[in-house]
């Protein structure tokens, strides 16, 4: 009896997550893409790197890749031929992706974050990293709409993604691997009246692609960050 109920609960939770991901797909749109609204790194075939990402290796890996990717981002854009390198990460069961060009580092969850009052609910605390105080944001709270948040199984945050020249940290459950996808394989969102932090979806990996630059702008504005 209890087992049945638990299975029903898990099924409902999975259904909710599937529905949410489906809604992201619906919102992402198809057909001709307007890449001007999306933040992408344009990496040529020669720069294709698919490293094996493990817990202890993330920081040096990102540090090593970053200069080259930043440089390539300035290259002329050829969307139909260009490749996009993204880090897949886990957010309470939801598969997410972030462009490597927008990622400044990944750090392990610290022993403690300094809790500073008088901030928005998304705010987890201050991370002390390399002499800097970096606000850490609860990404799951932003991504999951309130109606799904109650059903969502909370999982411990294990990593922090650093974006915006290490000005912001995003709490996530864990990181997976770096993959290269063709830009044309991404369902880019064209118009963003809601969820401005969502660049699009990557169907081949079943993940939502985060627009870190747009998210940073929202955070700087102190926007309430529409979750629905």
């Amino acid at each position: 009896m209890i087992g049945e109920r638990r299975q029903q609960g898990l099924a409902a939770e999975k259904q909710a997550l599937d529905l949410y991901l489906d809604s992201l797909y619906d919102d992402a749109g198809t057909g001709e893409e307007d890449l001007s609204s999306a933040v992408v790194s344009l990496v040529p075939e020669s720069a294709k790197i698919v490293p094996d990402v493990s817990a202890g290796e993330m920081e040096p890996l990102v540090g090593e890749l970053q200069p080259r990717l930043r440089q390539e981002a300035d290259a002329p854009s050829r969307p139909e031929q260009d490749l996009l390198q993204v880090l897949l990460f886990n957010l309470s069961g939801l598969k997410m992706a972030i462009s490597m060009a927008e990622l400044d580092g990944v750090v392990d969850w610290p022993e403690r974050l300094v809790s500073v009052p008088d901030n928005m609910p998304l705010y987890v605390g201050l991370l002390q990293e390399s002499g800097r105080q970096i606000p850490v944001i609860d990404l799951a709270r932003l991504i999951f709409p309130a109606r799904l948040r109650a059903q969502q199984k909370s999982s411990a945050c294990e990593r922090i993604l650093l974006i915006g020249n290490r000005r912001w940290g995003l709490a996530c459950s864990g990181v997976a691997e770096v993959v290269t996808v063709e830009s044309s394989a991404v369902n880019w969102r064209r118009e963003r009246t809601t969820r401005k932090w969502l660049a699009g979806t990557i169907g081949s990996h079943g993940s939502a692609l985060l627009d870190a630059a747009a998210l940073e702008r929202l955070l700087q504005q102190g926007n309430e960050l529409v979750c629905g």
């Binding site: 500073v116 008088d118 901030n119 928005m120 998304l122 705010y123 201050l126 105080q133 606000p135 944001i137 000005r167 912001w168 955070l219 700087q220 504005q221 102190g222 926007n223 309430e224």
Partner: peptide, 11 residues
């Protein structure tokens, strides 16, 4: 601290 409540004057 970086503003994360959007209301600088109220902080």
């Amino acid at each position: 601290t970086p503003s994360t409540n959007g209301e600088e004057n109220a902080k």
